[in-house]
Lab assay of single mutants.
Amino acid sequence: QETIEVEDEEEARRVAKELRKKGYEVKIERRGNKWHVHRT
């Protein structure tokens, strides 16, 4: 599992979309004022 930390929701969604295109399962999680995209 890989976690990518980004600054805002828009970027989290963009990253998640790219990963989904490559066939990964992803989960977006908010952590305080950061966003984490988990590749599962």
Rank of each mutant, 00 (worst) to 15 (best):
Q1D: 03
Q1H: 02
E2Q: 11
E2G: 15
E2L: 03
E2W: 05
T3M: 15
T3K: 14
T3Q: 13
T3S: 07
T3L: 15
I4D: 00
E5C: 06
E5W: 11
E5T: 13
E5S: 10
V6E: 00
V6F: 15
E7K: 10
E7L: 13
E7N: 11
E7F: 03
E7S: 10
E7Y: 12
E7C: 08
E7G: 15
D8C: 14
D8P: 14
D8Y: 08
D8G: 15
D8N: 15
E9R: 14
E9P: 11
E9W: 11
E9G: 11
E9D: 12
E9C: 04
E9F: 10
E10G: 14
E10K: 15
E11G: 14
E11R: 14
E11F: 06
E11C: 07
A12W: 00
A12H: 00
A12F: 00
A12E: 00
A12S: 06
A12L: 02
R13Q: 08
R13Y: 01
R14A: 05
R14K: 11
R14Y: 03
R14S: 01
R14D: 02
R14P: 00
V15W: 08
V15G: 05
V15E: 04
A16S: 06
A16D: 06
A16I: 02
A16T: 01
A16E: 10
A16L: 02
K17L: 10
E18H: 00
E18Y: 04
E18T: 15
E18I: 01
L19W: 13
R20E: 07
K21S: 09
K21Y: 14
K21E: 14
K21V: 11
K21T: 10
K22Q: 08
K22A: 07
G23V: 01
Y24E: 14
Y24M: 08
Y24S: 07
E25V: 05
E25Q: 09
E25Y: 09
E25D: 15
E25R: 08
V26G: 13
V26Y: 02
K27N: 01
K27T: 05
K27S: 05
I28F: 07
I28R: 06
I28V: 09
I28Q: 11
I28M: 10
E29Q: 11
R30C: 05
R30N: 01
R30F: 13
R30E: 11
R30H: 06
R31D: 05
G32C: 05
G32K: 11
G32W: 03
N33E: 13
N33S: 12
N33F: 08
K34G: 11
K34V: 07
W35C: 02
W35S: 01
W35L: 04
W35G: 00
W35D: 00
H36L: 13
H36P: 00
H36I: 05
H36Q: 09
H36D: 03
V37W: 00
V37L: 05
V37T: 02
H38D: 07
H38W: 09
H38F: 12
H38I: 03
R39H: 11
R39D: 01
R39N: 05
R39C: 10
T40A: 04
T40R: 13
T40S: 01
